[in-house]
Simulated scan of single mutants.
Amino acid sequence: MSNRLLAIVEVSPEARIACQANGCGHAVYKRIHVVSINGSLQVLGSECFKRLFGGAIGGNPAYSSSDGRRLTDAERRMLQENTAQLVAQLEAEHEAAQDPAREKLQRISQSGIAREASGGPPHRFRAPLPVRQPAAPRRHLGPTPEAIRKYEAQAKIDVRAKFDVDPNLPGWRGLVLQRITELSKSDEVPD
């Protein structure tokens, strides 16, 4: 027989249970691992589970999510008193959750088989509708290179006059670019 992670569960902090690992006995309430070890059921805290099994047992439990399921008070008592009964209940819940999906697949499969058996055409999926491509964005025709040169020349004149600096020096290029933007929006450049 092999070792298998059956479920990860949790209980309220006030209703902690004892870890059943040899020599442990710590009270645990979150991420309680229910494990089948050579056919025998054992309830372990997460640290003992890691210590004992590391990566030897897959991290996905058979009958619960890997996040853990909060147990009711009755289920908690069952975990302590009759773990096998709780595992059977979790297995039944897991199977019931799987049935609707199985039934739907079976109905789809059988409807196709029945159609083919009656001489009707086999079930075919409709082709997806073509995806409509968005219209290409309209190109903004900005100023021509000649206009940009005019804007730049005017911007340098304005920056020199306003701040009494040389606009060709590295620290002032930002002001020149800002003024070019203002001029291009307002069309103030003389011809």
Rank of each mutant, 00 (worst) to 15 (best):
E10C: 08
E95H: 06
E47W: 09
L52A: 05
S36W: 07
E95I: 08
Q20Y: 07
A27Q: 12
E75N: 05
S66I: 00
Q89M: 07
A62T: 07
A84W: 09
S12L: 15
A84K: 12
G23A: 15
A15N: 09
P100K: 11
C24G: 06
H26C: 09
V34N: 00
V35S: 01
S64D: 02
V87Y: 04
L52H: 06
N60Y: 02
E93F: 01
R102Q: 13
H94N: 07
S65Q: 12
A56N: 12
D99F: 15
L44D: 03
H94R: 05
S40F: 06
H26N: 13
A27D: 13
Y29V: 03
K30A: 04
G23K: 14
S36Q: 11
L105K: 09
A84L: 11
L44M: 07
S65D: 11
F53Q: 04
I32D: 02
I17V: 15
N38I: 03
N22I: 10
I17D: 04
V11T: 12
M78R: 11
D73Y: 06
L105M: 08
K104L: 12
G58S: 09
C48T: 09
E91Q: 13
V34H: 00
A18Q: 15
G59F: 06
G23R: 14
E10H: 08
Q42F: 10
G68H: 01
Q42P: 01
E91D: 08
